[in-house]
């Protein structure tokens, strides 16, 4: 069986909020290393990979592999019943047809308990190859969100060009064109506001802005986001957490 207690409901709320629009129904794969998820969106253009490591829970018990098929809109409704500072305990049997959630508030001794029905979801797992990316760009989450939002007003696509000087996001559409360039820089007082580019070779790739805007729903998970690019492979957008990550992969647009 699974028993996993997380100190702060807000962590789980933010993770689900980050992915629910992209992958409304998905399997949470639980085993002794933690709770993981891998799912493609309906159009198979983007893939979400999430991990909440066992050491982010206390206690954490899961002695065999359990897949929890969850409708994330249903889970969101139940998680709204938890306050951000509540502890959440997740419980499920070995072959479960429901997931039990207990929310506890130690301050006012309030305990609430919910069960949500699980679904059978036939989901194939894809092998994600270990990739040495040509460019890896770390920038403030809020900056990335702003760039995606701004450029999505002009165009459906953005070209991301990484050089050792920095990264340039550019787009063109019916009303005109636009670009934002971030030069590599280090903010000594606030390192999370720095822009860092690790580069082995220059990269220039084009992606759909609609998906990037969607990925930015994960912005509350981390102060920085890392974009990893190589020519002709999907972009990796990674939000790291203390005990896990949310990664989005986005297939590029290529010349016809």
């Amino acid at each position: 069986m699974l028993e996993a207690r997380i100190e702060q409901a807000s962590v789980l709320k933010r993770v689900i909020e980050a992915i629910k629009d992209l992958v409304p129904d998905c399997n949470f794969d639980c085993n002794d290393t933690g709770i993981a998820l891998q799912a493609m969106d309906n159009s198979h253009v983007a893939l979400v990979a999430m991990l909440l490591r066992a050491d982010g829970f206390s206690p954490y018990r899961c002695d065999r592999n359990i897949a929890l098929g969850i409708n994330l809109n249903s889970l969101t409704k139940v998680l709204r019943c938890a306050q951000n500072e509540d502890m959440i305990t997740l419980k499920a049997d070995d072959a479960p047809d429901s997931l039990n959630l207990v929310f506890e508030n130690t301050e006012n001794e309030r305990i609430s308990e919910y069960d949500i029905k699980l679904m059978d979801i036939d989901q194939e797992h894809l092998g994600i190859p270990d990739t040495e990316y040509s460019a890896s760009i770390t920038l403030p989450t809020a900056e990335f969100q702003r760039i995606c939002r701004d450029l999505s007003q002009l165009s459906e696509s953005v070209a991301i060009e990484a050089t050792k000087e920095g990264v340039k996001f550019s787009c063109s559409g019916d009303i005109g064109n636009g670009s934002v360039t971030l030069r590599t820089h280090q903010n000594v007082d606030k390192p999370e506001l720095s822009t860092k580019v690790d580069l082995t070779e220059p990269v220039n790739l084009t992606f759909s802005l609609k998906y990037l805007v969607n990925f930015c729903k994960a912005s509350s998970l981390s102060q920085t986001v890392t974009l990893s690019l190589s020519n002709e492979v999907p972009l990796l957008v990674e939000y790291k957490m203390d005990n896990g990550y949310v990664r989005f992969y986005l297939a590029p647009k290529i010349d016809e």
Binding site: L126, G127, K253, I254, E256
Partner: peptide, 14 residues
């Protein structure tokens, strides 16, 4: 123009 590719053309089922 550019054409959108899919994830399945890069990552294969396990």
């Amino acid at each position: 123009g550019k054409q959108q590719t899919t994830i399945s053309s890069f990552f294969t089922p396990k």
